[in-house]
Simulated scan of single mutants.
Amino acid sequence: MTRYVIVGAGAIGATLGGRLAQADRDVVLVARGEHAAAMAERGLTLRDPAATVTVHPPVATAPEDVDLTVDDVVVLTVKTHQVLAAVTAWADRPVRDGGAVVGTAGELLPFVTAQNGVSSEELCLRYVDRVFAACLWMPVVLLEPGEVWVRSSPLSGVYQVGRVPAARTDPRDAAFLDRLVADCAAAAVEIQRPAEVLAWKYRKLLANLGNGVQALLGDGDPEVKRFVGLARDEALAVLAAADIEPVDPDEQRAGVGGKTDPKPIPGQPAGMGGSSWQSLARGTGSIETDYLNGEIVRLAHVHGVPAPVNTVLARLCRQAAARRDAPGSVTADQLDAALAHPRTA
């Protein structure tokens, strides 16, 4: 029986692992701090528009707590800026078959990279042979330890999953993906298998450029849409200069449209923002925007084209996270002023 080792069981990882546990699949949640302690002590509570459930999967806090076997799948659900530390901690862990060590996790096990952005796969390929990218459409919020708000129902999420690079093939891959599709279907997560998953991740990257804007201005600020439009228009020009073609919007709508639209949950808090908003709300001191808006900045530097909007957004988000500012610490006027003078913002 396949076991899913969910490394970084925050909002995304706890939802996926919790749904798999709810469907009686074998899973272990790897987390840390108060969130890990809460899940170990009283279980993981998932609240969605239709119901509230509590599950009790095993919880680990370090790689040394998990004895890996050839039946395991490692699912990295940390944020992109945490991937390098996670993959280096897990790639060299011994893997057993019938009690005997037969190799390392990086040599033998499939690793699923379930992050926003497009950098995780290249980071992991330094250490892992079988890397499978996952493009995530899963509106979930983690604000309190041991409790996740899953904002879509009946599906908790839709993932596009595929081998990276796509040209790599392995006799084990088809069977692994078949199991993943079946197990996740039982767990209210739809897995799609496109020919080129990174084209999907670039489309999602465009959607995620608004995460930092929402974090800076606050959830529900009416000016968010205007600034997001500026960031995306600039990003499309940069991607064109880099000769990168994301999945067509019509293909996105056909694959995902309406399936994961957020719905109200009884008793939900007033603020329910995205991943970057949640980083500021929890005061983590770090934020993933260097791999979202910052990815556009990287490509702009490589190809010699301007990207002042995304440069400023990435910088302001880094600074807000370092200061542990709450969401909404920047006004629209302040952001306009920063964009008008990007070199001094």
Rank of each mutant, 00 (worst) to 15 (best):
A31H: 01
H35G: 13
T15K: 01
R179F: 04
Q334C: 03
T289F: 03
A175V: 03
A60I: 02
G117P: 06
V197S: 00
H303G: 07
S329C: 06
M272Q: 06
G274M: 14
I244C: 03
C135S: 15
L299W: 00
V55H: 10
S156D: 00
D183F: 01
T311A: 11
P342S: 07
V128H: 08
W200T: 05
T88H: 13
R253G: 10
A307L: 00
A166V: 04
P57S: 08
A38C: 04
A254E: 13
P94F: 11
H341S: 10
A21S: 08
L209P: 03
L209K: 00
V330M: 14
G285D: 00
Q160E: 07
V74C: 12
A11M: 03
S275C: 12
F227G: 10
P145T: 06
T284W: 14
R93A: 15
G99D: 05
R232L: 10
H341R: 13
A14S: 15
R47P: 01
D72T: 05
D221K: 12
A338M: 11
T311M: 03
R282S: 05
G258V: 04
A86G: 07
A321F: 05
L177Q: 09
R203E: 06
L209V: 06
V148R: 00
T88F: 09
L143H: 08
A89K: 02
G285I: 05
D67Q: 13
N116D: 03
V140A: 14
A307W: 02
R315Q: 07
T331K: 02
K79R: 14
P154D: 09
L46R: 00
V140Q: 02
R232S: 05
T169W: 09
G220Y: 11
P266V: 11
H341M: 07
D173L: 01
P58E: 05
R168W: 12
L125T: 14
A241T: 09
A237T: 07
I12S: 10
V228L: 13
V70M: 12
V87M: 12
T260Q: 02
D170R: 03
D65F: 10
C317E: 06
A338Q: 06
R343K: 09
A281Y: 07
G157E: 03
R3Y: 08
T61F: 01
R318W: 08
L177R: 04
D178S: 10
V102S: 10
G146W: 15
G285M: 04
A175C: 00
R19I: 01
D178Y: 00
V148S: 01
S119C: 07
D183S: 07
L299S: 03
S156C: 09
C184K: 00
A91M: 08
P264K: 09
V256Q: 11
V305P: 06
R253E: 15
V161I: 12
D71F: 09
I12Q: 03
G106R: 14
V302Q: 12
V161K: 06
T289Y: 02
D24R: 10
L109Q: 15
R324H: 02
M1H: 11
A50M: 05
A300T: 05
T331S: 14
D48Q: 02
E107D: 14
V74I: 15
Q252H: 15
E122P: 01
W149Q: 13
D65Q: 07
T113E: 05
R315T: 13
D65L: 09
T80D: 01
D173H: 12
T284H: 06
N208V: 02
Q252E: 15
